[in-house]
Nucleic acid binder design. Structure first.
Lengths: 200, 200
DNA sequence: TGCTAACAAGTAAGCACTTACATACTTACT
DNA sequence: AGTAAGTATGTAAGTGCTTACTTGTTAGCA
């Protein structure tokens, strides 16, 4: 018999293995057998901890929806009133996090495409709140006459879109980036274009 | 017995039914049975025209990779040397096409996520060539001193990213757009920010 | 009359989930 | 402190349904 773990720790390991597989192959593309093998247990153990494969998937989405790292760090930088700094920080953080662990982006896309019931919650916690944060920042800038008059939400989505698209191209479609275009330089260019574009 | 069609016409109908299903549910999520039902034939008929489900999928990707409408219309507008006009035209065309038929975008994403072998070809024909077109346009503008010095490919991807992200949000994640933000107005705002951002 | 489009009815493999049972750890009683 | 009972963790081996693909046969058209 295999090593005996606490229910909590075993559950954690199942989730860990499942995240990797679901993010790589999607819900439908992942076999419960594979999850069991990756977690080095029998399939029955999965079903002791989760009633169905779908419930395991939902637990993962809920867990991934709960973290707040990006927004927290963005809020810190925002206090400095350095527009270029805010854009650079948000952009870089998004890229750093996604490159360090692409599973979140893939899970988000898979869950939306596969029409999972919690896809909306996932989107709201990960994307919508980021839009709102940047939108509020831009709205303030408009009021304070640093930026010209425009729809702040659309503008915010525009900037986030530049970054997201960069991530899609490189992380999903596997485009290699030439040596001269590091994330820092790309974000710098996006921030520069965008900021010059919204300033008075 | 069912109506008798030419092999060509029957094949076309199978592909038509399969496109709808693959784009909605992905390769793994689509059953050959469903395709047969949607095309109103027996499963065996699919296998008379395509050796495997995968071959049918590949045929669809190849077909969808072959059309050139967007690039052709973009090239026409580009001759006018109206920068804002070019950006608006490219952006609007992307949105119009995707809203009229979201299957292409979904197929592109699904094929990349599911790791289909032809995903690269698909990406190059639909996305990379658009990047290159806009990149060349911007490069010329830089040479002609209308735009400031920058990496034209990164800039091009930035603008495309704004539009792609708009489409992702609305077509994939189902965000409703408020009545005042029509595609025209959104594209106008993106083009305005971007153009002001890259001009000298 | 021969060729090809068409189908009904398989078939073998795959899959999510279950069952019956074994083994380790915890607890409580003497 | 020793140990038996009870409980939680674990597995091996299914079970029945689904699914990609096949086979044997029929029927429309040149």
């Amino acid at each position: 018999m295999k090593e005996r773990l606490s229910a909590q720790e075993r559950r954690r390991r199942i989730v860990e293995a499942a995240v990797e597989l679901f993010s790589r192959k999607g819900f439908r593309g992942t076999r419960t057998r594979e999850i069991a093998e990756a977690a080095d247990i029998s399939e029955a153990m999965i079903y002791r901890h989760f009633a169905t494969k779908r419930e395991l998937y939902s637990a993962i989405i809920e867990a991934k929806s709960a973290t707040e790292e990006l927004l927290a760090s963005a809020a810190t930088v925002a206090q400095r009133k350095d527009d270029a700094g805010v854009l650079r920080a948000v952009g870089l953080k998004m890229i750093e996090q996604t490159e360090a662990d692409p599973s979140l982006m893939r899970l988000l896309l898979f869950s939306a495409l596969e029409g999972h019931e919690l896809s909306d919650i996932f989107f709201e916690s990960r994307v919508k709140r980021l839009h709102e944060f940047l939108s509020n920042y831009i709205r303030k800038g408009i009021k304070e006459k640093r930026f010209r008059s425009m729809d702040p939400l659309i503008a915010a989505r525009g900037f986030i879109g530049m970054i997201v698209h960069y991530l899609l191209i490189h992380e999903l479609f596997g485009v290699k980036r030439p040596p001269r275009s590091s994330p820092e330089e790309v974000v710098e260019q996006f921030a520069s274009i965008f900021l010059k574009g919204i300033e008075r």
